[in-house]
Amino acid sequence: MDFWASVLILFRRWCITVPACLATLAMCAAAYYTVPQQYRSDSILVLTTPLSGGTQATNRNVPNSITNPMMNFDRSLSLSASIVIQLMNSTETALSLGITPGGPTSYAVSNGSSNPELLETGPFIFVTATAPDARTAQDLTEKVSAAAASALAQRQDELSAPGPTQIHMVVVVPPTLAQPLTGSPMRAAAAAGALAGLMSLGAVFGFESLQSHRRRRRAEEQRATEQDDPGPRAAPGAAPEVGTAVNGSRAGRSALVDHRRVNGAARATSGNVLDVLENPARGDDGSESEVR
């Protein structure tokens, strides 16, 4: 079945196509408004080193100094950012912030990549919060940013890093105004529309196939009936009626002509016999012959 034949079927079965299209639109609208609207707020943080560096001299006369353990290696800021990201993405931290895993409110902390262990992005930390309410999303972003700074300070205190050598967290981009996310409702509406459209097409073409099957079955039954009962037959020896033709065929017309010829010959013979009986016998010269 080609494209235009399919389109013709859709137009011919409009009594099914039109309600199916209306039902598809209704399902799309219901899916769009059923899925809750989500709002998103973002913030960007960066780690910086102190002005005095990562070491502190305890005694001016002794060259020994104390170094911050989190700054005693290469790319220390990127590694420290990765540590903070791992801490903030843990389930325990989410529960402490009042976030239920799998709920409508969530947040994500990353360094700009899907793998926080990659250090190519530098000491940046990206915070994203999602919630059903715009104000809730923005407040959650602020709370997560503050928790990240607190986690960094707590980690350095646990390592006994001197205060002047501790890494600081600076807010580069404050929590933005929450923006609505249209992706989820649109995806739900698209999925519902695709499913309803397939069901509508199946209903239309299924009904067309059923009707075609019924037409073929009726045609076969009619042909079988005609073969079993060809029609009334003439009785043996019965003369065909004058003026009728059998199925309009040439044989019927020939039989009609022969029948008329036989009737004409019979009438002519009857007329000759009557003339002989009524008129006396005449000779060759036209005079009446003597009857003895």
Rank of each mutant, 00 (worst) to 15 (best):
I9Y: 09
V242I: 14
R233I: 11
Y39C: 04
T182N: 11
R216P: 00
T55V: 06
P232N: 10
T141F: 00
N59R: 11
V62W: 11
D2T: 07
T58F: 10
R13V: 01
N64M: 07
T269I: 15
M199H: 04
A239L: 15
T67C: 02
I44H: 07
T100I: 11
P101R: 14
S184D: 14
H259R: 15
Q38I: 06
F124Q: 06
V170C: 00
T67Q: 10
S41G: 07
Q86P: 00
T100A: 09
D139H: 04
T182C: 05
L119G: 05
F3H: 12
G271T: 14
T24E: 04
A190M: 15
K143N: 04
T34V: 08
A30V: 06
S160C: 01
A265V: 13
Y32C: 06
T67G: 03
V257N: 06
I167H: 02
S113I: 06
G54E: 03
G286I: 05
L8F: 02
P63N: 09
Q156D: 01
R215F: 01
A146I: 01
H168G: 09
P69S: 08
S212T: 08
I44K: 09
T100M: 08
C15Q: 10
Q56G: 00
T55G: 07
G183R: 15
E158Y: 01
P123T: 09
H213C: 02
A108I: 01
P280L: 04
R13Q: 11
N72P: 00
N111D: 14
L274R: 15
A57E: 04
S289V: 13
P132V: 08
N61A: 13
P230W: 09
A196S: 15
